[in-house]
Design a protein around this nucleic acid. Sequence first.
DNA 1: GTCAATTCACATGAAAGAGACCACGGTCTAGTG
DNA 2: CTAGACCGTGGTCTCTTTCATGTGAATTGACGA
Length: 402
Amino acid sequence: MAERGLDVFFEAFLRKESVFFDKRTLQSTYIPETIPHREEQTKQLANIIAPALKGDKPSNIFIYGKTGTGKTLTTKYTTKKLIEAAEREKTPLNVIYINCKLKRSADTEYRLIAQLATELGKSIPPTGLPTEEVYKAFLRALNKQDKTHILILDEIDQLVSKTGDNVLYNLTRINEEHTKSQISIVGISNDIMFVDNLDPRVKSSLSEEEIVFPPYNALQIQSILKQRAELAFNKDVLQQGVIEKCAAYAARDHGDARRALELLRVAGEVADRKNDKKITTTHIDEAEEKIDRDRIIDIVVTQPKQYQLVLYSILSLQPRRNKSIFTGEVYEIYKSLCSRTNTSILTQRRVSDIISEFDMLGMVNAKVISKGRYGRTRDISIEIPETTLPRIRRILEENIRV
DNA sequence: GTCAATTCACATGAAAGAGACCACGGTCTAGTG
DNA sequence: CTAGACCGTGGTCTCTTTCATGTGAATTGACGA
């Protein structure tokens, strides 16, 4: 019977009318035909990397701008066009795009080089080899092909903050030692201060050229949304003011176009699920809440057990909300929680770090304050919206079995 | 009342350890001709 | 003789612990007005 019900459900699902025409155009991986409001940056970038078409080595470039300002999109778009041109001209050119933030793919020196070698057709085991060996393998692969390589390192600040600037130094030096193939590096970062902390040698060679991506303003986001919405949705499903509202939300958050597109997409999904034929501004509100909630829940469930214990400790102190929560109190609760659940107890030092990690994730707000004679501690308050809290509690209780 | 010293309760940093994971080369073993 | 199992060594990576040092204002207590 249940199966029968499912059959009907799926059939109905297929026949159901959707507000979407082509949902992919709202996803962040989608590369549109034109990138509005980024003409200047596209031209700059194209100018710098164009020498690759003549077999010369383009300057290294450093690109920065806040999240959702189109850095990645513009570089991908420009290099895509560059590759097309290179193919027409039969110029040997290779573009490697690597996102340094992706865990387990390129966030350490070893893995980055391994990834590069893999891109050049030399597979490297995920671990077990001395880093030097990996370098050698990479260089061998590089020397085998006589090409110009453009290496795009997205979220390069993540890489450096984790592993130091050694890698970059080595990479920039490759050109001096090995003349057969050339590498130019495109570093993308959303942290502007990042270059200042680099080794001066690396800094000067990496940022031979710089391109800045300013945040979009509300009007620009509107026009971006309109362009995408036209492709993504069926005709006339967008109610008046929906795009404006989306743009306003995103502009409030320093002009993050990615957020705006996601908001629009989720709003469409919400409308679909409710069988509404039109997307209204209330859908936007719901979508915003849903995105927020999903994000938090996702973070919580993927957290390791010790982290969940710490978070649960913080949450159980929360009823005394008017009073502040301090590290010491959290640690006490955490300790008793550990012995109740037969978990090994971490040191206060570690718990302190865990709390600050939750702070970075935006789950709590932990401010270091000094209480004078009564010491120094973190003043912790919870940032999870009231409506999501019970659900988080339930998830945590289930996971740590209290 | 003023001012410097003290003191608390952690924060913050650096370094090193533990344990999981993995590749590689060498040795052993069983199967094959 | 050889392919595959097995083992020891040496490497990375993440999570922790240990040890050491830092920190900012309430408190204290000496001092002078």
